[in-house]
Write a protein that binds this DNA or RNA. Structure first.
Lengths: 136, 136
DNA sequence: TAATTACCCTATCAATTTTATAGGGTAATA
DNA sequence: TATTACCCTATAAAATTGATAGGGTAATTA
């Protein structure tokens, strides 16, 4: 299941996308509009910023804005930044690969192929950009 | 991520499948062969049985066996029996539908469609039976 | 029918993850 | 220089996950 953090993150990005202006949008505004606890949101924004999905500007009239073209921001990027791997088992993850502890041999693992296929299919869907969401 | 319980469950089913005999296989044998803590396995087997994926026979020489044809047992069935929904958000789950608490209107929800498509695609892959696994 | 083997049920628990809160510090702008 | 907003660390309640414990019940074999 998607974590609440990831859901909040996606909502935040969509909010920034739908309310793009010349000036950035403050965390407080996002927090109230999307009903995300303020301090929790700050923490999420920090992750989104460190992954170059949003950028920030300090000071009065400061706030957050998207760090790149909306068409270049995918749902998978957001999910990875917040929750980590898309894959359901670590040994088929591309960006967060880890061997399965209890698995002695990946070649002969009976479930690895299926979950590899699953991962690829999930990624191909989640790679859609946030501008694509409207036209599904 | 797949829970350890679900991984154990899949391994259990595959073990039963690969070691089909006329007599059932005891939990103890499965536990040792697949390195699953005995009492933990008992608990998993209970769920698998209540979902009619395995059946059991009591007494000396008793144990577990598959409750139906291997070709009729899918990975998705096992996952649902153990972990619940396949979908990443509850409002697009078919077997475990629940409204998203923070979502006021499913029709206008900006992420619902994408995760609905994702769910369908995941299910279509996970619906493969345990006999299909070998030929991927 | 007694001993054995294996399934069944409930309770408990430690570890981890998730969700959230608190408080103060730093940088930039009006 | 006051204000606004971002930055950082610590803490903690709640939920989930993974596992253990112990005894009870049913069925088979000798």
């Amino acid at each position: 299941m998607l974590s609440k953090r990831a859901k909040y993150a996606i909502k935040t990005i969509l909010f920034l996308h739908e309310n793009q202006r010349h000036t950035p949008i403050s965390a407080k505004v996002i927090s109230e509009a999307e009903k995300i606890p303020y301090k929790f949101l700050e923490n999420i924004l920090r992750d989104l910023k460190s992954h170059q999905i949003v950028k920030s500007l300090r000071g009065a009239e400061g706030g957050y804005s998207l760090a790149k073209e909306p068409s270049q921001i995918s749902v998978s990027q957001i999910m990875r930044a917040i929750d980590g791997p898309i894959a359901l088992i670590p040994c088929v993850s591309e960006k967060f690969y880890e061997p399965c502890l209890e698995c002695t041999d990946e070649e002969t693992c009976r479930i690895r192929k299926l979950f590899g296929i699953l991962r690829n299919e999930m990624v191909s869907i989640l790679d859609k950009s946030i501008t694509d969401l409207a036209s599904l």
